[in-house]
Design a protein around this nucleic acid. Structure first.
Length: 485
RNA sequence: CGGGGCGUAGCGCAGCCUGGUAGCGCACCUGCCUUGGGCGCAGGGGGUCGCCGGUUCAAAUCCGGCCGCCCCGACCA
């Protein structure tokens, strides 16, 4: 169990991130499979908690889970022109199976709009079949040129929602309803503040009418697209001939949506809260939220302390706290503190002879490092509130950082001034709010400082209309411009 | 996919230039001792030197190819 040093953020943010992922027992590179990772127990446990939060909300809003094949006939991708153009470069294709060359190759799904479109066409006949609200938890494969654990890997886990509706009004409402769910989970569960917005035409999903996203700011100021929700219009309906008979007796193509969040969220979680000592997990996503470290010297102390630790553990369990006792032999308490610290455990409870004598235990918070002695009799009952406070504090801290690093700009020169001098790797990235048109030429103008329009916020974050910093044409509200992962 | 760096014990590295029986620290195992922020002492185990090929009496070391990881860029959740 070698635990090595963690590179400080200020020295090398990318190295820090990788150290935290590794030392936090979250994941490691698959090494023998290019661009892939092994998600380790701590990382997968976080994913399961996140999955559950999302899945409960999907179910509550009327969605049902399904599962479609991993393999998709290559021709399916070609049915929607923009879609194939967008995904072709990153497809992995199966050409040989069972020792025979396939008549038609299969692609490993990069996303499932096409194969789902095919089945929607079979399942949907009438307006009474709508809306059709489906979701699947799956793995997808995209042959990425550059990978980073959780943020971008060749294979990743996600959920993809696919819905079909009778009108554009309904599909748009669904798209935005999901965007709200994503934002709620990001902010309330992950403690990661996000900006909800519309993607530009240049940044939207290949094949969509409009894409919407939640954008988060990492500690180095880079933007992370944390979730997307697409209003597909009738594009896939037409490509896959998904028609239904409407109330008036006429035939119509369905209006579809698709939306997804992935294991990338875990990368965002890590880069939102962790520090130079390692991983920091918000309580709601911590697989274990309190670890009890027993401290003892003599045999009779050991017996008493372990007994007290176990009963505290049971008490915590009764109060709904995911806790455990670190009973490992041969490790000093100090070694255990460091161990759990780098794994991001929200609370460590120190319990030794001195505490027992005083009828207390010492509670230590992972984020602030503050220690607080609490009477044993009431400790377990107070832990949930302490966890909740930490959850809120993490969110507030992230929110403050987002606010402090969001700056308005009135011209391209000002955008450059804000973004150019500081390299994002050194932690100086910013969100720039500026009026800019949703046009290829405008996005092109941002390229030289490696920035993009992250989104056009759903709610005006500043001061209403103004002239485009590239063309001078009037623009309704400021967009978020930033460098992104 | 282009540029750069790296690949030697579980981890971090030295050795490579100048070919000649593979080393160090941590971790691990055993025993004793210790335990309120990474205990100590003693003994011990562990290696196809990323892979394939070439040169050579002899390759971790020289040459060629390939693979993987990291960083930067272009493409992307």
């Amino acid at each position: 169990m070698a635990e090595s040093r963690i590179t400080p953020r200020a020295q090398d943010f990318a190295a820090w991130y990788q150290d935290v992922v590794l030392e936090g027992n979250m994941a490691e590179p698959a090494e023998i499979v290019k661009g892939c990772m092994v998600i380790k127990p701590n990382g997968y446990a976080v994913w399961e908690l996140l999955q559950r939060q999302l899945d409960d909300r999907f179910k509550a809003s009327g969605h049902e889970n399904v599962y479609f094949p991993l393999l998709i006939p290559e021709s399916f991708l070609h049915k929607e022109a923009e879609h194939v153009e967008g995904f072709s470069p990153e497809l992995a294709v199966v050409t040989i199976a069972g020792g025979e060359k396939l008549a038609e190759p299969y692609v490993l799904r990069p996303t499932s709009e096409t194969i789902i479109g095919h089945f929607f066409a079979r399942w949907i006949q009438s307006w009474r079949d709508l809306p059709l609200l489906l979701n699947q938890w799956a793995n997808v494969v995209r042959w990425e040129l550059r990978t980073r654990m959780f943020l971008r890997t060749t294979e990743f886990l996600w959920q993809e929602g696919h819905t079909a509706h009778a009108s554009h009004e309904e599909s748009l409402a669904e798209t935005l309803r999901i965007l709200d769910i994503y934002a709620e989970v990001a902010e309330q569960v992950m403690a990661m503040p996000v900006i909800k917005g519309m993607k530009t035409q240049g940044e939207k999903f290949a094949g969509a009418l409009r894409s919407y996203s939640i954008e988060a700011m990492m500690q180095n100021g880079l933007a992370l697209q944390a979730g997307t929700s697409h209003d597909l219009g009738q594009n896939f309906g037409k490509a896959f001939d998904v028609q239904f008979q409407n109330r008036e007796g006429g035939r119509d193509y369905v209006w579809q949506t698709s939306w997804g969040v992935s294991t990338r969220l875990i990368g965002g979680l890590i880069m939102s809260h962790s520090d130079d000592k390692g991983l920091v997990l918000p309580p709601r996503l911590a697989p274990v939220s309190a670890v009890i470290v027993p401290i003892f010297r003599k045999e009779e102390e050991k017996t008493a302390v372990l007994a007290a630790s176990q009963s505290l553990h049971q008490e915590l369990t009764r109060h709904g706290v995911r806790s455990k006792v670190d009973e490992r032999e041969g490790l000093t308490p100090g070694a255990k503190f460091f161990h759990w610290e780098r794994r991001g455990i929200p609370l460590v409870i120190e319990l030794g002879p001195r505490d027992l004598a005083a009828g207390q235990a010492v509670l230590k918070r992972r984020d602030t490092g503050t220690k607080q002695p609490l009477p044993l009799a009431e400790l377990a009952a107070r832990v949930p509130a302490e966890l909740e406070r930490m959850q809120q504090d993490l969110f507030a801290a992230a929110q403050a950082r987002l606010a402090a690093n969001t700056i308005r700009a009135a011209s391209l020169a000002e955008v450059e001034e804000i973004l150019a001098p500081v390299t994002a790797e050194k932690g100086g990235g910013k969100f720039v709010l500026a009026h800019i048109q949703d046009q290829a030429a405008c996005e092109e103008a941002l390229k030289k400082f490696k920035a993009t329009i992250r989104c056009i916020p759903m709610q005006d974050l500043a001061d209403g209309p103004g002239p485009c910093i590239v063309t001078g044409a009037p623009v309704e509200r400021r967009s978020v411009i930033a460098r992104a992962y």
